[in-house]
Design a protein around this nucleic acid. Structure first.
Length: 192
DNA sequence: TGCCTGATTGCCT
DNA sequence: GGCAATCAGGCAA
């Protein structure tokens, strides 16, 4: 079942935790790839110093201020893209960064896109998974509750062991434990 | 206009 | 563990 738009209308902290264990699905003419979300980070609005929305709305971050359930994709370090899902209602900035997946389906296509042999290196980082999934900037501000790129609720139980701690790669707001991951999952991103 | 930084990654020592 | 790659956004001047 595809998660409905209303799923994302809640606090990014709640959505970040609830996304763990769900499936990110991308269907293209090249094939279908599926990854299980195992690590997320919540970014809040204008009060969160680590958020792109901290200094208010700009052309780059405008999707974060838009309706919930759409993709906020940004280009960084001159070469990488990261994928977020927008939360809260139109006018309130919030998003969840998808930091890591566990490869589920379409592994040959993921290997082709990523050019690595180790399955653990396929999707264990925010820019790595964007590459492996074939997500492009064309999805900027596009919904993830319908269309080629969606999030699905899997069959079976929800994950039981969830960990929480500071976000990674930020220089401000490290005191907030807004990162969530499946405890002991081998696809969670590597700390550096 | 110019400078600095970044929600990262991969390669090098 | 260190650092280059590589560029758009944001801000100061």
């Amino acid at each position: 079942m595809t998660l409905p738009q209303s799923f994302y209308r809640r606090s990014a902290l709640v959505v970040a935790r609830d996304l763990l264990g769900t499936l990110l699905v991308h269907r293209t003419s090249a094939g279908t790839v599926v990854g299980r979300i195992v690590e997320t980070e919540a970014y809040l609005g204008v009060k969160d110093p680590a958020s792109h929305a901290y200094r208010g709305q700009t052309n780059r971050n405008r999707a974060m201020f838009g309706p919930p359930g759409r993709a906020y994709i940004y280009f960084t370090y001159g070469m990488h893209y990261c994928f977020n899902i927008v939360c809260r209602d139109h006018g309130i900035a919030a998003a969840v960064l998808i930091r890591a997946l566990e490869p589920v389906r379409g592994l040959p296509l993921m290997h082709k896109r990523r050019r690595v042999n180790d399955v653990h290196q396929l999707t264990n980082g925010p820019a790595k998974l964007v590459s492996a999934m074939g997500i492009t900037k064309e999805y900027y501000d596009q919904p993830v509750y319908r269309g080629p790129l969606t999030v699905q609720r899997p069959l079976g139980d929800r994950p039981k062991h969830i960990s929480r701690g500071p976000r990674i790669g930020i220089s401000r707001g490290q005191q907030f434990p807004y990162r969530f991951w499946l405890t002991d999952n081998s696809s969670v991103s590597q700390a550096r």
